[in-house]
C-alpha cells in the first residue's frame, strides 16, 4: 500500500511536549518530516493504517491525512 501524508495534532495538555509525542509517533511507524511545536502539530508520512494506530498514542488528539490547498484557474471569470 502506498504511503500517505499524515498530520498528527497533539492534545492541549501535550502541546509543550510535542517532541516527546513525535518520538512516540516514530516508534509507532510514522516518518516524521516536520514539527510545529508552537501549535502542537506533527507532519510526516507512512502507511494508511497509521491513521488508526497513531490515534492511540499518548498525547495525540487526532490524526488526519494532510490536506492541500489549491487555487482555481487564474481567470477573471472564475472566483478566486
Amino acid at each position: 500500500m502506498a504511503d500517505i501524508a499524515l498530520k498528527v495534532v497533539v492534545d492541549e495538555a501535550h502541546i509543550g511536549k510535542t517532541d516527546m509525542v513525535s518520538r512516540s509517533a516514530v516508534k509507532a511507524g510514522m516518518r516524521v518530516e516536520s514539527i510545529v511545536p508552537e501549535i502542537g502539530v506533527i507532519y510526516g508520512s507512512g502507511d494508511e493504517t497509521l491513521l488508526a494506530s497513531l490515534a492511540k498514542v499518548e498525547g495525540v488528539q487526532k490524526v488526519d491525512k494532510e490536506t492541500s490547498f489549491c487555487l482555481p484557474p487564474c481567470s477573471e471569470k472564475v472566483p478566486q
Binding site: A5, K7, E33, S34, V36, E38, I39, V41, Y43, E66, T67, S68, F69, C70, L71, P72, C74
Partner: peptide, 13 residues
C-alpha cells in the same frame, strides 16, 4: 496554485 498544508502553516508561523 497549490500548496501543502505544512508549508502554509510554516508560512503563518
Amino acid at each position: 496554485g497549490s500548496g501543502r498544508e505544512r508549508d502554509i502553516i510554516a508560512g503563518m508561523i
